[in-house]
Design a protein around this nucleic acid. Structure first.
Lengths: 349, 349
DNA sequence: CTGAAAGCGCTTACAG
DNA sequence: CTGAAAGCGCTTACAG
């Protein structure tokens, strides 16, 4: 009746199939599969062989249902094509994989407050044990605590957050950028900001302002940007009319790169006439002409820290402890390249 | 005894809790939750209220265990920080979300054949109904059919693949790029290739060669690259020694952008002395100086098509049909910008 | 339109 | 070191 080719009809072997083939009980198979307790070496071997023969892998849903853990981390963010989101995701993927967790990525479509809140509300439907949120700024705090007992780590700044956070040292990065320019001899540093609804952008702007004030310089008017290359070009039109414009600190690299391109087309030399600094250190930054001086954010480390903290929280609550609230600040590094230099001898007209 | 604040101890309401509160059976709650069959309007309303009051959301693991479907798609790829991977992922995320599926992203660490195979082998452990693989080239075909009955769609070229594929029209894109340069009056077109182990890179190289031959031009020696900006700089050293080097077709944008930067530093004008074309159309391409002429790949569409095909397969096999094998080719568009122009009057020395 | 019963494939106590 | 029983929270037939 039973032939070698007879495999379970459902296409996938279950723990019972393995148990039968190995001549043991299902629990023993489970013990071998999870490595949870001691099994006699010879038994273990027999079970392993049966597993291989049947191509067995445990049903994740059954395991999750019984154990209450999915072995998955959720990653919620808006616009997973920007440098920050992408590199953070890489860090999360790497760290999670190392610890045997899979990653469920959820993209918030439009990035409006409504979209964020609705995404958070839909989360409990998804199978995940813990959650990393990139830029939670726009989320209502009450909503983010919605997934009951679910550990949450927030990437970026979220004032008054009841959750652990991992963020770049924005203030230090900005200070390094501005003081680098001042150190080169520039009389002042102009600033192209990020969008108004971004907390990070506001922090960079105010750090720029404070650094100038500390050096006794009255900050010039901010040129508004929105992270995009297009806003870098728009910024150029406004900046070229200023007589003292020899140095510009841009809120991110995209804007800085587009600004440099526009300045060059307007007949300005970078850094001969104008020095430009960005923020992020995207991959291409070092290969442009001129190579971009910028502040390196270690997004990958942010992702890795997030996973580590999340799993600590998970373990703490498994032990019945109250998970610790942590705030990690990841250091930055100023990458000095070719887009900055001393100001021109004679003020450009 | 029972107070308003009494919630189930486990922190999350179950279907039974909702049923009790609404005064119906668990199945009726299930019917309302899944919308699977007709329920009297007044009953539905009562159930909905109970759900809201308890903050109920169905346990994904239980649902998956019972229904055999996880509501999740796996996305397997190497290096989720490159343009292609990232934008394809965006397309997958958008399309999956629209259909109520979540996306499990798995990053293949080193991109070696071994890593690919081991990632594929580990997949059945993960909770997913179907799988999208970006660049399966390095995977052993037998392994990729390992997850029994799991629909698979492959992005990119995989000769002899037993699975459905979605890919960019590489040949047409290359032809457009090369003929654009020839049309401008260039006598020949040099080529910086992608890495040897990439099928896509090989296709672009051979399409470049064939296009030149079709126009009666003997193809110059290929300059080897590997997608990176660094290889664009290396290519510059080799290219500047060639007398007839007035036009270069690069296998991707990163290489092209770095090459342009290096050419400029070597005193060449782009496009005055040399015209350069890339492939991909990354976000920054239009904002560089000069703006990059390149072939636009619609990665987002690739991701969306992949999801659509996957779900068709899933539905077909649910109906007991043999899922159809599809091959979708996504059209390209040549973006003519500032990095290309007619050759210099006098051959540059 | 609604309900009582069975069972998806595991793991978790509890015995031995 | 190993096993028999129970049950995680759902959905799927099967009744009515």
């Amino acid at each position: 009746m039973s032939t070698a080719s007879e495999t379970p009809r459902r296409g996938r072997a279950s723990i019972t199939d393995v148990a039968r083939l190995a001549g043991v009980s299902a629990q023993t198979v489970s013990r071998v599969a999870t490595g949870s307790s001691q099994v006699r070496e010879s038994t273990k071997l027999r079970v392993r062989q049966a597993m291989d023969q049947l191509g067995y892998s445990p049903n994740r849903a059954a395991r999750a249902l019984r154990s209450g853990s999915f072995g998955a981390i959720g990653l919620l963010g808006h616009d997973f094509s920007r440098t920050g989101e992408v590199l953070t995701m890489r860090g999360v993927l790497d760290a999670a994989q190392e610890r045997g967790y899979s990653v469920n990525v959820v993209n918030v479509a439009t990035g409006t407050t409504d979209e964020w809140n609705s995404a958070v509300t839909r989360l409990p439907h998804l199978a995940m044990d813990a959650l990393i949120v990139i830029r939670a700024e726009l989320v209502q705090p009450e909503l983010l605590s919605l997934p009951a007992r679910m550990p949450v780590v927030v990437n970026g700044t979220w004032p008054g957050s009841p959750h652990s956070t991992v963020e770049t040292d924005q203030v230090e990065g900005t200070r390094l950028a501005v003081e680098h320019l001042l150190g080169l001899g520039h009389a002042t540093v102009h600033h192209v900001s990020g969008p108004e609804d971004s907390e990070v952008a506001r922090i960079r702007s105010s750090a720029w302002r404070r650094t100038l004030l500390l050096h006794g310089i009255t900050p010039p008017e901010v040129v508004p940007g929105d992270w995009t290359a297009a806003s870098g070009i728009a910024a150029c039109h406004r900046l070229v009319e200023r007589d003292d414009m020899t140095a510009v600190f841009c809120a991110n690299d995209e804007t800085a790169i587009a600004l440099i391109g526009a300045l060059q087309r307007a007949g300005k030399s970078v850094p001969g006439d104008v020095s430009v600094v960005g923020f992020d250190d995207i991959d291409l930054a070092a290969y442009l002409n001129p190579p971009l001086t910028t502040v390196n954010q270690n997004f990958h480390a942010i992702g890795q820290h997030s996973v580590a903290m999340l799993l600590e929280q998970l373990e703490a609550s498994t032990r019945g402890e109250r998970p610790p609230l942590q705030r990690v600040v990841v250091p930055v590094e100023l990458m000095v390249r070719g887009s900055t230099g001393p100001p021109p001898r004679v003020a450009p007209r």
